[in-house]
Every structure is written in C-alpha cells, then in structure tokens.
Design a protein around this nucleic acid. Structure first.
Length: 475
RNA sequence: UCCCCAGUAGCUCAGUUGGCAGAGCGGGUGACUGUUAAUCACUAGGUCCGCGGUUCAAGUCCGUGCUGGGGAGCCA
C-alpha cells in the first residue's frame, strides 16, 4: 500500500507538469536578467487600467512588495475576461516577459492569455486603490495582508523568526519546545487562561478534570527552559505565550510569541551581552534581507526609522544600575507624574526618559530592589537587590526582561518562604538546585515588540496576523 | 480596570447658534492607442453606532450602553 500511494502521487505530479506550466513568482520575474519567452504569473489584481484596444493589469502575488505590470491586447475573449476583473480578483496571465517601454518598471508581461481564477465583486470588496487607516484594516484582518504595508509586515515577520533561529543555531544553542499547557499554578508572570475539558460552567473539582489538577496556558517557558539549560547548556525556546491580563494598550496582547534564551554557567553580564548582541544581529539581518520592505516603513510609517536602527546597531547599549537610574531621575529637572524614590518600580515615563532623552539609545537597567521582583532572581551581596535586568528601547519600552537565576538552594528556599510559595509545588524546579546546581541566566524577548522596533509600527496588533485582545476574537 | 477622545455614504472626513444630509476618494456607465493610486464626463449611494430623554424641531443638547483609538496600570 505505501508503494502504491507513492506511485499514485508521483504520477499525479508528472501529470500536472505536463498539463500546466508552473507559475513564476513575481519576485523572481522582476529579478530576471533577460527576457523570457514563456511565463505564467498568478496573483491578485491591484489595479486595472483600460485603454482603447488594450488594458494594463498590476498583479501582486505576495512574494514581494512590487507589483508586475501585464499589458494585454483586447480580443473578444480577453475583453470578456477583463469585464469580470477588478481590484482584488485572482488571475493567471501567460505570455512573455519583456523590457517595458513605459516608465516606472524594468520588466512587464506582454499577456497572451488571461484566466479569471477568482472574481472580486467591486461593490463589496473592501480594499480600495488608496490608503486605508490601520483601524479600518484591523476590522478586516483576513484581507489586510493583501495590502502593501501588511504584506511587508508579514514578510518581515517571517524573516525575523528565521533570523532568531539562525542567531542561536550559529551559537550552538538548542531549540527546546517548552510546553504550552502548564500545571504550575504560580509561574507568577501574570493572569492565566484556564484550560479544561470539563463542560462550560462545570462545578466539578479539578480532580475530575483532564489532568487531575488545575491547568492553564503558559505565561512563560522559563522554569522549563532552566531545566534544559542545566542539562544541554545554552538553550532557547520560542513559542506562543498567553496572558489573561485585561490590558488595553498598543504594546499588549493576550497571545504573543516570546523568545526565551537560557545560558548555563553564566551571570547577569553575560545575559546582557547576549541580549545586546541578539538585538543588533536581528536588526542587521532584517536590513540586509528585507531592504525593500523596510524602505516602505522608513518612507511612510516612521521617518526616523533608519537613523534609529543604525544608532542601535553601532552604539553600545547603556548599562545602568537601578540605584543610579533613581539618582538620575531624581536629579533631572524634568517633572514626573510619579515621584521618584528608591524601591519603587520604574514607571513608563521614567523608562522613556532614560532611553529617549537621557541616553538616546537602548538602556539596560539592572540590579533592581528584591521587593519588586520574583523569587527566582539571584540575590546580590547587598541583600537588597537582585540580579535582574530590563532592556529599555526608545518608543517600545521594555523589549527584554531577564535575570541571573538564584542557583543557591538555601537562598532560593528562603526567598520562597518569604513570598509564601510552597516548596512542594516546585519540587522538580528545586531538584535542579539540589543536584549539580550551577549559575545560569536568561531573559524573555517579546517577538512582536522586536518587530515593532524594526518596522516602526506603533501598535502591536498591526504586527500580528490575527491579534487577540480583550473583547476581540473575531478571526 | 481607570482617565480622555471619537463613532455621519464602501473609505477618509466636513457639518456653524438645535432648523431640508455634504465633499474627496472608491463603485457603476461612457470616452481615450503606453497607463503608473491613469485621466475626462455623467451617475447611483445614508438605520448620522444602539436605546432612552429634553424640544415645535436633535447628526448637533442630556443620560446610558456598545465599539474603536490614545494615555495609565500590568508586562514581553
């Protein structure tokens, strides 16, 4: 049977090859070095311009930002097809690729045949040949990737994800798939979405639920990745993360992707080195590999994008102990809504002042008071601060949050006791400190926030295919 | 969750002191032999977010709900 199945597939493939010419992606066609006698382009019509005797079609297939122009002479068949075609229709054009006599493009397709693959009713198709507001496009998230801007965002998003893996692979990190469903009730990074297989409104105890205990969607893979860092060495996880916080800001969503490296035999300085190197690498990679798409954002979305990115690329990041940050904030003439004093968490206005006005570049603030940080961060010798760090970036705010982890069993359990956490719940986490414990550190980077930084897009909902936010789950 | 702002044609928005619902773009029809968000002419298109109230009269004023945006908190 498996042999038959293989043969059947193989035959079908050959059959298809005989019958249809394979389509050429527009990106490839536009990069041609010489004319092509026979070419098939399949894509969506961006605009149709009719003249007496012939028409222009601009086609986009998503492979790149640019459209390809097809010129088609009118025949009765072509006119019949053209009448069914408007902005948004899916079509196939076959013909030859020739140097364009018109201005504005190097190549164009001189079309011989035109096939309507899918019509788009002009009365109801919502995308028009003009600029739409981001707010409007959020309401048609299923169609917005057909626009220039959103096509560019999602091509860059794909490339950025690949770059993350390449960065770590080149450094011999291992990619670990940490679980999405978790039983740790107290990962401590925010409100969690409950997972259950019991019926809606069920009063049954968690003992009767699928896992026999309460379960939820992960808010962080950190505790899991630590176990692998203390086994395979340098590791990272990169996957979806869920927060049930009722946050309504342009920087928060309920479902997002987080990159969480964890490095073994490493301290907080190593952790900051890694974060800085990674941010610089990702920016360089996108500038090198998505130049055309990035240019769109530099032109139309954020005029300061290129200088901002170049500045991040070449300037060493500022590293600032929390205590010094407080002194700077106290000394400055600028007035803040929230009064500044040692022991408080930095407010958005303080973070923005530090990276946008004081230093004008990314800033690592580190060694925060222990009272505002979770139990697993390593206690410093002053017994007042922990080895935590946040990387603050102009316009985005917190792009990275991380720490050196507390590897000393006695200090860790003392901290847990202080914070009323049960050792039993964390038995497996504590085992890593009980057996062969070693210094290690890591951080979480918001993938979408990185994407916002690279594109200049100011709302996180616009860099996600289908964003999940409070009261919004249409798509 | 709190504070502020907005909701009028498919889209972007104007609408004066409460007095007949408007523009540009898009759509449709026609013209044009190389266009570039083509151009030109003509044309259709409205639950003024929902509910309640004030008033002779409400898109406009008041109350309330919903949705969206900005800011804050939480954080990535």
């Amino acid at each position: 049977m498996p042999i038959d199945g293989f043969d059947a597939r193989n035959k079908k493939k050959i059959h298809q090859k005989d019958e249809y010419m394979k389509r050429t992606k527009i990106k490839q066609a536009l990069n041609a070095s010489s004319p092509v006698d026979e070419i098939v382009i399949k894509g969506w019509v961006r605009t149709k311009r009719d003249n007496k005797g012939f028409s222009f079609l601009e086609l986009n297939d998503g492979s790149c930002l640019m459209n390809i122009q097809a010129v088609i002479d009118h025949t009765p068949e072509i006119v019949a097809a053209l009448e069914r075609i408007g902005t948004g229709a899916a079509v196939a054009v076959s013909g030859e690729l020739v140097a364009s006599p018109g201005k504005g493009q190097q190549w164009e397709v001189r079309g011989k045949t035109l096939e309507v693959i899918g019509e788009a009713d002009q009365e109801t198709f919502p995308l028009q040949k003009k600029r739409h507001s981001d707010e409007f496009l959020r309401g048609i998230a299923h169609l917005r990737p057909r626009t220039n801007k959103y096509g560019a965002i999602f091509r860059i998003r794909s490339e950025l994800a690949q770059a993350v893996h390449k960065f770590f692979a080149d450094k011999d990190f291992f990619y670990i798939h940490t679980p999405i469903i978790t039983g740790s009730d107290c990962e401590g990074a925010g409100e969690m979405f409950r997972v259950t297989s019991l019926g809606a409104g069920s009063q049954e105890p968690a003992d009767n639920d699928f896992f026999g205990k309460p379960s939820a969607l992960t808010v962080s893979g950190q505790l899991s990745i630590e176990m692998f860092s203390l086994s395979l060495g340098d590791c990272y996880s990169f996957g979806p993360t869920f927060r049930a916080e009722n946050s309504n800001t342009p920087r928060h969503v309920a479902e997002f992707w987080m990159i969480e490296p964890e490095i073994a035999f490493a301290d907080l300085a190593d952790d900051m080195d890694l974060g800085e190197e990674m941010i610089k690498y990702l920016i360089t990679h996108i500038l090198d590999n998505c130049a055309e798409d990035v240019e769109l954002f530099a032109k139309f979305v954020d005029k300061t994008l290129m200088p901002t990115l170049e500045n991040i690329q070449k300037e060493p990041f500022k590293r600032l102990p929390y205590t010094e940050a407080i002194e700077i904030l106290k000394k400055t003439k600028k007035e803040f809504e929230y009064p500044v004093e040692w022991g408080m968490d930095l407010q958005t206005e303080h973070e923005r002042f530090l990276c946008e006005e004081q230093f004008k570049k990314p800033v690592f603030v580190y060694d925060y008071p222990k009272t505002i940080k979770p139990f697993y961060m390593r206690m410093n010798d002053d017994n007042k601060t922990v080895a935590a760090m946040d990387c603050l970036v102009p316009r985005i705010g917190e792009l990275i949050g991380g720490s050196q982890r507390e590897e000393r069993m006695d200090v860790l359990t003392a901290r847990m006791a202080e914070m009323n956490l049960s050792e039993e719940e964390y038995w497996w986490y504590l085992d890593s400190r009980r057996y062969g414990s070693a210094p290690h550190a890591g951080f979480g980077m918001g993938f979408e926030r990185m994407l916002m930084l690279v594109t200049g897009v100011t709302n996180i909902r616009d860099v996600m295919p289908f964003p999940r936010t409070p009261k919004s789950l249409e798509f």
